[in-house]
Each structure stands twice: as C-alpha cells, then as structure tokens.
C-alpha cells in the first residue's frame, strides 16, 4: 500500500539472474498452477477439508461457467471496471498535477510536508461511514474511497520524482528564463515520469482493492456486491468463483500496468537494462 521505497542497489541485472530457458520456466509455472487446482480438487474430495466450506475445484469451475452466462455477472463486472477506471483516473490526474506544483514550489513543498505525512497513513476505510452517509451507497461513495487511497500513492511518488531533478538542469532552465510550464514540461517531467509510473502501477492495484472493498462493505453495484450476496445466500461455490474472478482481474491490472510502464519508459535506463542483456 505504501510506496515501494529504497530498492537496494542490485549488482547483477535482473535479466542475468533469471535462470536460462524461458520455456522450461513456463512449464514449471504451468505445473504449479495445475498442482494448485489438483490440491483444491482433492482436499474436499478426500474429506481433509469440509466440502461445505471448500467445494471441489470442478464445482467452483461449474459455478463460474454458470455465472458467466448470466447478464448480471457482466453488468457487475462492467460496474466494477468503470468505478475502478474513474477513481483511478481522477487520482492519477490530481496526484500528478498537485505533485508537480507542490514539488516545484519550495514554499509549498515545505508547508505541506507535515500535513502530507500526517494524512497519508490514515486508512481509507476510516472514511467508509462518512462515504455512506454523505454520498450514499451508490458509485460516488466507493469513488471517494478509491480516490482517497490512490491519490496518496501517486502524489508521494511524484513528489519524490520532482525532488530528484538534477539541480544543474534546473538552474540552467532558470538561467535561460524558461517559463514555469516550459520548465515543468522539459526539465521536471522527464525526471518525474519514472516515479509517476511507479505511482501508476501501485495506484492501479490499490484502486482495484478499494473498488472491490467499497462494493463488498458499502454495497455499491459490482463484483464485490455479488460476492456479498452469494455469501448471504450461502452459495459457496459461487463465492469461490467470484474470488477467482477478482484475482484474475487483479493479475490483468498488474500485467497491464507493468506493460504500460515498460512502454512509457522504454527510453529509461531501468527498462533498457532489462531488455539489453
């Protein structure tokens, strides 16, 4: 949830550490997934785990297949993704703009430091009662949680980034009397971008967690609410099926965010080093 601080200086490049043979690795990975499925199938069948609590995987899969034929499921999936996308976008834009402005202006940065340090660790779920009472159980309530939690991820990373700008480059820009916006675009932004992308990647995950949480606890329409309904009506296989769906969405969001990061930062040394060797 918090920023990934202090990556230790690695002496070897990540690519060099990777074991040789990508296909071999994929094979092992597939074997791992299949083993998990097998374990999930055998645990309840053998009676080691109560099948009322953990149905065999085949039943979960059947419940999933059943679910995806219903319109209700796809509407809920759409609702979840829309809430996620809106909340994430708002947090991203506000976080980047505010971070650039606060980070570039010395007085602002100093004056806001203590407030940011104080507000950031406040758990976003503390806002749930407020969100429910002031904004209701619809999308705005969940959006408040999503935006609040995601905003800090992005803001803090952008602030680090702006502080990382080379002082010589900054002074040069000042000597040439670059306008504020020109400096922001040509000097500050290129340095900040890698940090902003870290915020982007972390924020995408946090936004998804809070979207589902809001749906689960507040009852905003979406996959989380379907899960809560399945729980209340005792459809255990369905519950597991929905948990698997949220996990798959999470994997896709992670992969997508990493792909975007690689694409946007293809010029940056952290990505170049990875693909070079």
């Amino acid at each position: 949830m918090t920023i990934r601080t202090a990556a230790p200086p690695s002496t070897t490049t990540p690519a060099a550490r990777r074991p040789r043979g990508g296909t071999n690795r994929a094979l092992w990975g597939t074997a791992g997934v299949l083993s998990l499925i097998l374990v999930l199938e055998l645990l309840p069948r053998s009676g080691a785990v109560d099948a009322r609590f953990l149905p065999p995987f085949s039943e979960i899969a059947a419940a999933l297949a059943d679910r995806i034929t219903t319109g209700e499921f796809w509407t809920a999936l759409g609702d979840t993704l829309v809430t996620w996308a809106i909340g994430f976008s708002i947090a991203l834009v506000v976080g980047i703009v505010l971070g650039m402005v606060i980070g570039s202006v010395g007085i602002l940065r100093d004056a806001t430091a203590s407030t940011i340090e104080f507000l950031r660790p406040i758990p976003s779920v503390a806002l749930i009662p407020l969100a429910v009472l002031m904004l209701g159980t619809g999308r705005p309530g969940t959006l408040l949680l999503v935006v609040y939690a995601t905003f800090w991820q992005v803001l803090v990373q952008v602030l680090y980034g702006v502080q990382d700008v080379d002082p010589v480059a900054r002074d040069t820009a000042r000597s040439y009397r670059f306008r504020f916006l020109t400096t922001a675009r040509t000097v500050v932004w290129p340095t900040t971008l890698p940090f902003a992308m870290t915020g982007f990647r972390l924020g995408a995950t946090v936004a998804l967690i809070l979207t589902i949480t809001g749906e689960l606890i507040i009852g905003t329409p979406g996959l989380g609410r379907l899960l809560a309904v399945a729980q209340q009506s005792g459809q255990v296989s369905s519950m597991y099926a929905l948990v698997i769906v949220t996990g798959l969405i999470g994997v896709l969001v992670n992969l997508g965010a990493r792909a975007v990061e690689r694409r946007v930062l293809h010029w940056h040394s952290s990505v170049r080093r990875e693909t070079a060797s």
């Binding site: 202090a6 990556a7 690695s10 990540p14 990875e274």
Partner: peptide, 8 residues
C-alpha cells in the same frame, strides 16, 4: 523484476 527508481 524492474529496478525501481531508488527512493530513499
């Protein structure tokens, strides 16, 4: 696996 921008 990507090397993160170090943020001390």
């Amino acid at each position: 696996t990507t090397t993160q921008p170090a943020t001390a």
